[in-house]
Structure formats: C-alpha cells, structure tokens
Design a protein around this nucleic acid. Structure first.
Length: 424
RNA sequence: GGAGAGGUGCAGGAGUGGCUUAACUGGCACGCCUGGAAAGCGUGUGUACCGCGAAACGGUACCGGGGGUUCGAAUCCCCCUCUCUCCGCCA
C-alpha cells in the first residue's frame, strides 16, 4: 500500500511511475487527494466538537461535586446538539476513510527506475545467461516420463488421493526432495539467515499484510470454517512475523529463511505448461526474507540475487536472470529479478526463483517500522524476499539435463544430502 | 467439544461511572550528586491522525476488536475475538 501523504505530495510522480506498470492511476489519485482534503476538514470539525464536549462533561462533573445541581442540568441541556453533530461527523468520517482505503489498496507499488517498459513476459530484460545448454541423446525423455520410468513421482496416485497438481514423490524421488530442501536451508544458514518453521496456515490479517488479500484472494485455498488460508509461499507467515512492530535501526537487517510446502489454486491454468512438475497446486520451497533499512534495501536485493545465483551454479544448471518489465512485475513489487533454469528435454526456460524488493509497500500494510537511534518518529522499513529455491522445476531440470543412458546423475553438491550418486 | 478465569502503557500490576492528568513497582533515557561508579534524588518515557514549512506546542482517538447506555466509560450492557486453567478427545 502506498503512503497517503506521499501520494498527496507527489501525485504526478505516482501517476507517471505507474504508467510503467501499464496502470492508469490518474483518476484514483485525484479522487484520493480530493477525499483526503474532505477527510481533513471533517476531522478538524469533529475534533473541535469533541474538545468542546469533553470540556462540558468535565464541567458538569465539577458542578455535581460542588452540589450545583441546577447549573449542571442546564449544562446538560446544551450538549444534545453537539452530540448530534459529533455523531454525524463520525459517520461521514468513517465513510470517507473507507473510500480512501478502498482506493488506496487498488494502487500497485511504484516500480523502480530500472524496471523496463513492457507489456508482458516477452519484454523482460535478460541480465545474464550462464551455463551451456546441454545436448541430450536421442532417446532423452521429459521429466514426467523419467519420473515414471525410475518410479520417482506418481502423478496418477496424487490424482486419486487429492486431484491434479498434487503429486506423490516416492523412493529416490522423495529423498531427492528432502535433499534439496536440506541443501537450500544449509546454504541459507551459511549466508546468515536464521531458519524458522512457520505455520502453513495463516489468518486474514497476515494475508492482508503481505498483499495476497484483497488483491489476489483467488490464489489461496481458503478454509472457510475457521477463515484461514493455506500459505501460497512462506513469504506470508515469515514476513508477518514483523507485522505491527517497531524495530531498532541498529538491528537491521533481519534475515530469515524457511522451508514450507506452498499451496496455490492456480485457477485457470491449463495445457502443456502445467504438464508434470511445471505447475502444481502443492510444492516445496525454501524462501529467504529480509527486513532492511530503506537506504540499504537495494544492496540487500543484490546480495539476495547473489545468493540465489550461487545455488543454481552449485547445482550446475544453465540459468538466466531476468529483470521483470512493468507489465510482468507483481502488484506489490518495486523491482523483481526472476531466475530461470533451462529444461533440456522440454527445451524451455523454467522460472525457479523470484527475488523482489517491495520497498515500503508491504511494510505500510504490515505497520512494520524501525526507529533510528535518538529519532522519535518511527519510519517504514523495506521488505524483500526471494525463492531460494522452489523445488519442482529444479527437479524437472535436474532429471532432464542429467539423464544418461546409465541413469540420472545427481550433482556432486547434493550427494552428501541424497546419499546416492545416481538414479537408475 | 464442555466448564471457568482473563486481555490495561516497554514489563509487572492497581483501577466498579467524574480529584485518572491510568496509581504503584520495575525497566530504559536524561539530569543532579561523585575523582569515577554504585546507591540516592529529580525529570521524562507510546502510537496514529489533524493544525504549523519544520520543530516547539496544541487538538482528537486508542485500556483485545466492534456496537450500545450516559452530559461523561478502562469501569455498566450486547456481540465478536484471542489467551490461560480444568475436563474430554488426541499425535
């Protein structure tokens, strides 16, 4: 959520910057500014009326104590009109405030200056592309066939138990999952992230805090009986650890990592993009989150990009890094780098990580602030997060790229975690 | 699931309608005292919004959330929510 004062002070800037997200904010911004002025005027009137009321009430109390019944009753008579006015002010005020909030949550975050213009994924900017694209032998298989051939993942069984998009990993397939999770967590620990194990289910406040609600309500599974949501990413519970807190500037940045299962409804997805592990309703991911000082948040973003780069390099996967264009970047993000690995049998790039700086957009909703030493007024912190990494597409690429006639070779770095070197 | 007790400031904790400007204790900050410190003494100690260019200052709101009664609510009434204790069930 953008800051109301900031919008009021910089309406042109807001409108101009949001153009790069292909969002026409002119109407919303001018309405907000208009309503804001009305709100302030009303608040002035209401506050004055309340101040008067408080004064009279206090006087009545004093008069009663002194036994001056008649004067007290006379004073009482004067309050009824005031009371009516206050009631009306409060109703109008609440109404305007609700309208302002409604509009405010509709505005996306302002993109960073480096975000390229563009409509969709075809306009994303490729920053780097590293690693050789492997040439596979003629009988090379896509990962869903390899998974079946080596009995690693049973998609059909998942359909029986739950439905499409909920695969059952088994044998070395299941062990590979566990190995990757442990590898990613160990790497995050080395990079100074504190591991947390958050709940996989969150309440409405948490969903709102990170921006899944109300904008992307359809992405989450909703437990209506308790009004709770299955997390679409560990970003939600982990970032919400810092909801409604005031931190010390000297303690920044806070660094957390978490493994979690992630649940996404992915309503409307279909076709070959969802084949195999490409898109699931439940998948595993290790997430990294940082709470940073506003002056440092882009340094932190680079540090996180570097961390994720290390992971894909150690796994020996060909990868590229994209800077998302205005049309593809998320509602809440100011700058996002996507990591894609090459899946050699499918012959396409698969997104495995998204590393973003949300600046103060989430923090404003979360009321996540920090205080500079000796400064009275707290200010909003910056929040960042990134996948490090999401498993399914990594598994897809590993299976496809590392297949040989003898079996699937496990990258050296993973062997201590899997306990085996080859799947055959 | 059943019964009961609770939610007050940075923390503990008092407060059953107006001398509450939320007592008191502790923590923390600053000052006095000291060669320096401790002790002691004194002062201060939240958040949001509004007014002002900013600060100082002033106003309003906030005692889990929402609504109600009243001239006046932390206090009385209603609804919701969360926590704790006991019982039941249970990995």
């Amino acid at each position: 959520m953008l800051n109301l004062k900031f919008i009021q002070d910089n309406p042109e800037l807001v409108i101009d910057k949001l153009k790069r997200k292909n969002f026409d904010a002119s109407e919303i911004v001018s309405t907000i500014i208009d309503l804001y002025a009305q709100k302030n005027k009303l608040q002035g009137q209401a506050d004055q009326a309340k101040a008067e009321m408080n004064k009279i009430s206090k006087d009545i109390g004093l008069l009663f104590r002194e036994g001056k019944q008649e004067e007290a009753n006379a004073a009482k008579a004067r309050t009824s009109e005031l009371k009516e006015n206050i009631k009306q002010f409060d109703v109008d005020f609440a109404d305007i405030e609700a309208k302002v909030n409604d509009l405010l949550v509709q505005l996306p975050n302002l993109p960073h200056d480096s975000v390229p213009q563009g409509k969709g994924e075809e306009d994303n900017e490729v920053i780097t592309s590293v690693g050789e694209i492997p040439t596979l032998h003629e009988k090379a298989l896509p990962h869903w066939e390899l998974a079946q051939k080596y009995n690693l993942i049973d998609f059909e069984l998942g359909v029986k138990l739950t439905g499409a998009g909920f695969p059952v990993y088994r044998g070395k397939g299941a062990q590979l999952q566990r190995a990757l999770i442990n590898f990613f967590l160990a790497e995050a620990a080395k990079a100074g992230y504190e591991e947390v194990q958050p709940p996989l289910v969150v309440n409405e406040d948490s969903g709102f805090g990170t921006g899944q609600l109300p904008d992307k309500e359809g992405m989450m599974y909703h437990i209506t009986a308790e009004n709770l949501y299955l997390i679409p990413t560990a970003e939600v519970p982990v970032t919400n650890i810092y909801r409604d807190v005031i931190l010390d500037a000297k303690d920044l940045p806070y660094k957390n990592t978490a493994y979690s299962a992630c649940f996404r409804r992915e309503a409307g997805s279909y076709g070959k993009d969802v084949r195999g592990l490409n898109r699931l309703h439940q998948f595993d991911k290790v997430e990294v989150v940082q709470i940073a000082h506003p002056d440092k948040s882009y340094e932190v973003l680079n540090e996180m990009v570097k961390h994720v780069t290390g992971l894909v390099e150690k796994l020996g996967l060909p990868y590229r890094i994209l800077r998302l264009c205005g049309g593809d970047i998320s509602f809440t993000s100011a700058l996002t780098y996507d990591f894609e690995v090459y899946s050699a049998a499918q012959k396409k790039w698969l997104e495995v990580s998204s590393v973003s700086n949300f600046e103060s957009f989430q923090a404003n909703r979360l009321k996540l602030r920090f205080r500079e030493d000796g400064v009275k007024k707290p200010q909003l912190a910056h929040t960042l997060n990134g996948s490090a990494l999401a498993l399914p597409r990594i598994v897809a690429a590993l299976l496809e790229n590392n297949q040989t006639p003898e079996g699937i070779k496990i990258p050296d770095v993973l062997v201590p975690y899997t306990g085996f070197e080859i799947i055959d």
